[in-house]
Structure formats: structure tokens, C-alpha cells
Design a protein around this nucleic acid. Structure first.
Lengths: 295, 295
DNA sequence: ACACAAATGATTCAAATGTTGCAACCACAA
DNA sequence: TTGTGGTTGCAACATTTGAATCATTTGTGT
């Protein structure tokens, strides 16, 4: 929204002077300006995981007389945006720059967006669910992804490690990455991520795991990927982009969806685990400020 | 507004069957759909010069259970018009949670897709290009991203390392991650990735780099992120998802776009570098088969 | 003209909203 | 340790909201 918004700027300017709770409220307002106009204050507070009173206090802090002043502002902004022609101009800009101008960035982003949308096809969803179900029942989940796929593998492992200790990342210095498989059993699963060109080491480790009786699940890029034959279940991620490189964004999206499905399987336990993680990080002073969780 | 609006059409269809007062209410609703979402029923009735009860009766007449059904409809329409993504995320929270797993995945993927689409706004594109330009002229590019942001930072570094030796990843075992900054100079740039909650170590290292005169560029999640004040240029990535966790998919998309912009800046050199990398990997037998590159 | 049903207006009610005051709770200095 | 100033959660408050109820008016058919 390139439109000048004095209240927004005021909030940003005074943000650093706010107390933690006020910051949390302010942040939510900044990120969801429309909500301010569309829902009640109490509901807004609920979404922002803040006491209703905090919203009032935020208003006072900003020098307003009450919360309604804030809402009035965003209602006015929304009125202007919806029936005014600002929206139309904006849309035209988007369309024009995306297609005509040959803008590389916009073009690429649109492509990525489309690729992720395509993952919503029934076949993909089914595969996602199937993999998630298998992962649920595994004793340990080993995660393998080398080279470009390291980012996906690691992210999956990182999130899973917040939820429990079932995840083991097959990576390490000095070529010790596969060592963790020493203690692997047939009750375990291996989630392997690899896209073309397929790293030899990935395939070898996967074969080893398969020989040890692990259930192999894979995120890969093609029906003819060497992983398909080794895996019990596979989910395909598009990797084509209009740059020199293939993209891993859809693969990352897939891994995030898998994490979510696993967490959603037992909400309360997931919440507990996250709670514990929060406390741990808090006592370690890992993060700059308290970690707020929604709901 | 070329969008199909079933409720609007229903009102029009049943308009002739309404009593005069109902017609007056309905007419006002038709002509001021935004007001329905933005003001209370009583105020709407006042503007329409109708009794409050009439609005309730209009709702019942249309087969709805109450006036809130009507308001919900127009709120949703307004959300879609101004900010397509928030609606999708919110829908799940409000809608019955009874839906099966398939829906969670599909829903989440749609949300991610929308978030990436949103990065095509002119403001974001401008920021992307600005950061890419700064990166181009840097002597070295240090890349920093800890914890959840490691995946993004590493992926950026990995791709950049295929293109040349300007990229230095600030990470390493035994807490030596920041050591590479020892040789940093003011001609260098630091690309730092961090989203809430912001890792203290990231902020400290960034501050150190800034003190050493490096140009700070950041990928972060909010206007009020602590990185904003430290950075010369910033690009914002949405991180909200309808799961417990933040999503990093948009951040990864951003980093891939940056890589592409950098590579595209000098196509021939990029192709050369990739060619050389291919030969290297070939001689090392890193990949399972010859590495095909398009174009 | 009358009767009668539909439509309208006024009144009332329970639930919610935004606000306020108070008490507990920190972090931190004396 | 004990204050102390600021922050936060809680509960009570007066208002307002949307809906339900009842009385009145209106229009219509015989």
C-alpha cells in the first residue's frame, strides 16, 4: 500500500518506546490494518493475543482519545481503498508490470505462486497426507537433503525438533552426516529431499537406509527421479523457474505443510512442546524478546 | 467490482416480493455494500431511514439466520477486495475446524501462494531491485541467518557460491560463525535474514558488521523489526500461516529472486561460472549423472 | 363498512463492546 | 532486603448492539 498513512507511520515511529504488550498489539495492527476496521476491538485483541485493555492503552499511548479513533482511521482508509480508484490503479500497475514490462522479479514470483497453487491438486494433497500419516507412526524420522536441498531438509528438521525429539538430521561436519543411521531401525522412516541433479551421496545414503529396513519417503522433482523407485511414498515438487537455477520454494512449501499436518495431528501436544521450547529459549536468552503465540 | 456476488443477486431477485420498508433497507444495502461491513446495524438503519428491526427482518426474509450473516458476507467481500490473503488465513480460524486434513494442506498452500503473489506489489519489487543493485556492487557479500532463517541464508549462499566467490556464509561450528567478518571491509555488504522472534546473535552480529562499516541489507518480516533501523535497505516477507509456525516460504522466494536478479545482471558470466561448477562436480562425481542445464 | 392479516413501530432483553480502576507483578535502584 | 515506577492481567462498569416481543398501523378483500 504505497499510500501515505500518517497513523501507521506514527505507530512505527513510537514503536520502540512501547512496552512489550503494546508492541504486540501495535504489530498486529500494522500487519492487519483491515481487521481493525472490520472486527470488534475485543476480537482484534483476541487475534493479537493481547488483553482488550491493551488496545485501549495503545490508543491512549498514541495520543488518541480512545480506540475508536484508531478504528475510525482504518475505516476511512478502507473506504477510500475500496470504492476509490486507488485499488484499480494498483491492480493495473500489478498487471502491467507483471506481464508487459518484462519485469524479471514479478514474473518469477507469479510463477512460484502458480507452482504452489498447483500443489493443491488432489493427487498432491493425497500424497501429502499419505506421507504425513507414515511420518506420524514412525519411531524416528531421519531427514536427508544435501547441497541445494539442504535448506529444505534442515528447515523440516528444525521445525520438527521444536515439536519433539523424533527428528534426526543426517548432516554433519567431516562427512559424518550418515552416522546417525547407525542406530536406525525398521520402525524408523527416512524423509529424503533431492531434486535434479541428484547428489550421489544422497542416493547412496538412501539406499543404505532402505537396506536397513527404513521406510523411505521422498520429496523430489519428477516421476523419473531415482528416488521414486526407492521410496514407499513420494511427493513431487516443481522446480522449474525462468532463471538459471531451479527453485526450491515449492519444496519448502511442501515441507512446511508436512510439519503442519504432523503438528495438527495432536494439537495439544504440539502446543505443549512449543510452550516448552519457548521457555527454553527464554531462559537461554536466545531471542530478542518474548515469543508470543497465537490462540 | 467485477466479482460475482450471490447475495447481491439474491436481494435483487427477491426485491419485488419485499414490503416497502424492506425494499428501502435492501436498496440501501445494495447501494452501500461497504457500509454494511463497516458500521453497526443500527447506524446502517439510521442511514437507510429504517427501523433497526427492519434489517433483522431483511435478513430473515432472505433466508439468513440473522443480520450477522449479511454483515459477514460483506465483510468477506471487502476483505477479498483489499487484501486477499488475510481472508484465506482467517477463513480457517472461523470456519468449522471439522474439515479433514486435506483441507488444511490445500488451505495452507493457497495462503502461501497468495503471499508470494503479494510480493509483486510495486513497493516490494522496488525494494528487491534496490537490494539487488546494492549487492551487485559489493566486494563481498556476507550472508547471515540463524535458526529458522538458516535455510534461507544458506540457500542464498549456496546459489551465490555457484556463481562466484563473493558470497561468505556467516555460520560455522563451535560458535565461529561470525569469524569471517574479521576480514570484512566497508566495501562489503551483509545480507541478513531474520524474522520474529529475532535471534539475539543475529542482531549482535549485524550490529558488529554495521560498526565495521558494512552495508546492511535485510530480509525481515515487519516494518518494526529491529533490523529495519540497522539496514540501509530492507525487503519484507510475510510469515503468517494458519499453522503454529511461521512460514519461510516467501522469504525463500525472495532470496531466489535476488539470486536471479544478480545472475541476470551478467548472464554470460553467470553461465560461465555455472559451466565451471558443472565440470567441477562432474570430475568429483558429485551428482548421479551428467548435469543438464537448460539453454 | 367491517374484519383480518401483513407490515411497521416501539419496547425490551441478553449479549457484546470499549473503558476504567485496582491489584499483582515485575525489573531495578537504594 | 525494601521500595518504587512502570507494566500487565483481571474484573466490574456503563453503553451499545442485534434480536425478540408486543402493540399499533396499514392495506385489502368481502
Amino acid at each position: 500500500m504505497p499510500q501515505r498513512d500518517p497513523l501507521r507511520e506514527q505507530i512505527i515511529a513510537q514503536y520502540d518506546a512501547m512496552s512489550p504488550q503494546l508492541q504486540q498489539a501495535a504489530r498486529y495492527v500494522l500487519e492487519h490494518p483491515d481487521e481493525v476496521a472490520l472486527v470488534s476491538m475485543r476480537e482484534l485483541a483476541r487475534h493479537a493475543a493481547v488483553q482488550p485493555a491493551t488496545m485501549t492503552r495503545l490508543a491512549k499511548f498514541l495520543g488518541k482519545q480512545g480506540y475508536d479513533d484508531i478504528r475510525e482511521h482504518y475505516v476511512a482508509a478502507l473506504r477510500r481503498g475500496s470504492d476509490g480508484f486507488a485499488a484499480k490503479v494498483r491492480q493495473r500497475n500489478e498487471g502491467a508490470r507483471a506481464s508487459a514490462n518484462g519485469n524479471i522479479a514479478a514474473h518469477m514470483l507469479h510463477g512460484l505462486s502458480a507452482q504452489i497453487t498447483r500443489l493443491c491438486e488432489p493427487d498432491s494433497l493425497q500424497r501429502l497426507e499419505a506421507i504425513a500419516n507414515t511420518l506420524k507412526s514412525a519411531r524416528k524420522v531421519y531427514v536427508l537433503g544435501l547441497r541445494s536441498c539442504h535448506s529444505v531438509a534442515w528447515h523440516f528438521h528444525y521445525v520438527m525438533s521444536l515439536l519433539g525429539d523424533r527428528s534426526v538430521h543426517l548432516d554433519g561436519p567431516a562427512g559424518t552426516g550418515g552416522d546417525a543411521l547407525i542406530r536406525a531401525t525398521p520402525e524408523d522412516a527416512l524423509l529424503v529431499v533431492s531434486v535434479k541433479p541428484y547428489a550421489v551421496a544422497t542416493l547412496e545414503l538412501t539406499q543404505l537406509a532402505k537396506d536397513k529396513g527404513l521406510t523411505i519417503l521422498s520429496i523430489t522433482d519428477s516421476e523419473v527421479s531415482p528416488l521414486v523407485g526407492m521410496s514407499k511414498q513420494t511427493i513431487f515438487c516443481p522446480t522449474e523457474s525462468d532463471s538459471f537455477f531451479h527453485t526450491l520454494t515449492p519444496a519448502l512449501a511442501i515441507s512446511e505443510v508436512l510439519c503442519t499436518l504432523l503438528a495438527e495431528d495432536d494439537r495439544s501436544q504440539a502446543l505443549d512442546a512449543l510452550q516448552r521450547a519457548d521457555e527454553h529459549f527464554l531462559s537461554l536468552n536466545t531471542y530478542a524478546s518474548a515469543i508470543p503465540r497465537r490462540e
